[in-house]
Structure formats: structure tokens, C-alpha cells
Simulated scan of single mutants.
Amino acid sequence: MLRDLPQLGAELDELERLLVKNMFQAVGQYQRLQAEVEPPVAAERFAAIGQAVNDMKFEQALAQLRLFRAALNSEAG
């Protein structure tokens, strides 16, 4: 499902940092992360983050990101 979990975690940390600060760079960070998330389940969950980021709804994106990370953690064991 995910290519490199430690690297992905660091990139998700960066996305979260940008979202917390309501920074436009979150859009580019999300786009970089899209290549790391493979279909089907993770990609579907990740798409909800992207929709909020693209709509500049950073608080909503942050909430979706936290749900996504919680799901990753529960799947990872």
C-alpha cells in the first residue's frame, strides 16, 4: 500500500506542519505525497485530504490528514 513508510511519515509530518500554519505550500506537499500513496484504500482516504487542500480548507484537510494517519497506524499494527 505504501512505498516507504518512514519517509512517508516524514512527508506527512511536513504536510501537517504546513496545514497547521495555513500555508499555501501545503498544496505542493500534497501533490508530492500523491506519488507515495498507492490504490485502492489508502488512495481513497488520501483523496479526501487533497480535496480539502485544493479548496484551501486547511483545517478540514488537517482533520482528514489526522484520520488518514490514524488509519495507517492501525493498519500497520
Rank of each mutant, 00 (worst) to 15 (best):
M23W: 15
G77S: 15
E75T: 06
A35D: 09
A48E: 15
K57V: 00
A71S: 11
V53R: 09
A47Q: 13
A70M: 10
E36M: 08
M56A: 04
M56C: 09
A42F: 05
M56N: 11
Q34I: 07
E16H: 07
V41Q: 08
L15A: 12
G28Q: 14
L18A: 07
R17S: 14
V20A: 14
Q64V: 01
A42V: 06
G50L: 10
G28P: 00
Q64K: 10
Q31D: 12
R66H: 09
F46V: 01
V41P: 00
V27C: 01
E11F: 06
Q29R: 14
E16G: 11
V20G: 05
A48C: 02
Q34L: 11
A70D: 09
M23K: 15
V37T: 04
R3E: 10
G28A: 08
A70V: 03
P39A: 14
L8H: 03
M56K: 12
R17V: 00
V41K: 10
F68D: 11
F46N: 06
A63H: 05
I49Q: 02
R32M: 06
A52F: 11
G28T: 00
E44H: 08
G77Q: 12
A70E: 13
M23D: 15
R66Q: 15
G77M: 09
L33Q: 02
P40T: 08
F46C: 03
Q64A: 12
A52K: 03
L12G: 04
A76E: 13
